[in-house]
Computed example of a mutant assay.
Amino acid sequence: MLQKVLLVLGLGALACGCTAEKVSLAKVAPPEVILETVPAGALVSEGDKQRGSTPLVFSADDATAIHQLSFKAQGYHAEQMTVSGQDVVQHKGERMLLVLRPDAWAASEAAIDPDDLGRLGRAGTTLSRTDRCPEALQFFKRMAQVDPRSGAAYKGMGICFAKMNKRHEALQAYKSYLLVAPNAPDADKVREIVSRAEGDIDIPGRKPSDL
């Protein structure tokens, strides 16, 4: 009987030791950030090494390391970004965002600041006008993240969803536009579109010039 008790106690101590070790390992895990791009799915490389496509997790295994990253996506200019181990430590648990420039823009144009509403909107409009609406939506949605009261963001979404024949989403976007910009110069025209849509009349699909 005593042997059985000692055996149980020994197993209990072993289990406790394993648990303590796991907690200890968790404490020393390297900091990580999520690296994202607009548009999502850009290919990331570092020198000759392919790191995959965004979004991806970036770890600060070496706090002194400096990574020169290249980003490529079809229909966009290639972009460069430097990420150091210290950047990852500083932004631990956060996300780092890079916005790519549409290739319809001149290559000499400056990079897009992820918080620049004007240039985000311009990029979204450029894509929308060439019927690249799924991509344009990513730019307009980023605008709404930066400023939830950005009328241009919701108007852009409404136009894109209408072009994509996504009636419900277009209607919701137009309603959001009217909520944040009720006195906009084109507010009456948008109200008419909403009224017609709710009356089971098709939303104008491919006429972004109407707004």
Rank of each mutant, 00 (worst) to 15 (best):
Q80L: 09
S195Q: 13
K22N: 05
R119M: 12
N183S: 07
V180H: 04
V38D: 12
G10T: 08
V38M: 10
E36R: 15
K175W: 03
A78S: 10
L127P: 02
L25Q: 15
G17M: 09
F58V: 15
K141A: 14
V33R: 07
R167M: 05
P185T: 13
H168Q: 09
V57S: 02
R129C: 01
S59G: 00
L69M: 10
R129L: 11
I112E: 10
I34K: 12
E21A: 13
G118M: 14
P31G: 06
P185D: 12
A63Y: 07
G158H: 08
V83L: 15
A111R: 13
A107G: 03
K72S: 14
M157A: 09
S70G: 02
G156I: 09
K72H: 09
A123Q: 11
P134R: 02
I201K: 12
G158N: 07
R101F: 05
K207L: 03
A73Q: 13
P148W: 11
K27A: 09
K92E: 14
R51S: 00
A144E: 09
V99Q: 06
N183V: 01
G52L: 04
Y154G: 11
A104C: 10
G52C: 05
R129G: 06
D147N: 15
I193A: 11
K49E: 08
R196M: 14
T37L: 03
Q68G: 05
S128M: 08
F71E: 10
A136L: 03
G205P: 00
S59F: 02
E79Y: 05
E198H: 08
I34Y: 04
Q90C: 02
K163V: 00
V88N: 01
V8S: 06
P204Q: 04
V23I: 02
Y177Q: 01
A65K: 06
D147I: 13
P204N: 06
D186T: 08
K189E: 02
V89H: 06
A106D: 12
S24D: 03
G199W: 03
S70V: 04
F58K: 01
E46D: 10
D116K: 11
A73S: 13
L211P: 00
R142L: 12
F71K: 10
H168M: 00
V180Q: 03
E192A: 09
A181K: 02
V28M: 07
K189V: 05
H67V: 05
D48V: 11
A42K: 10
S195Y: 05
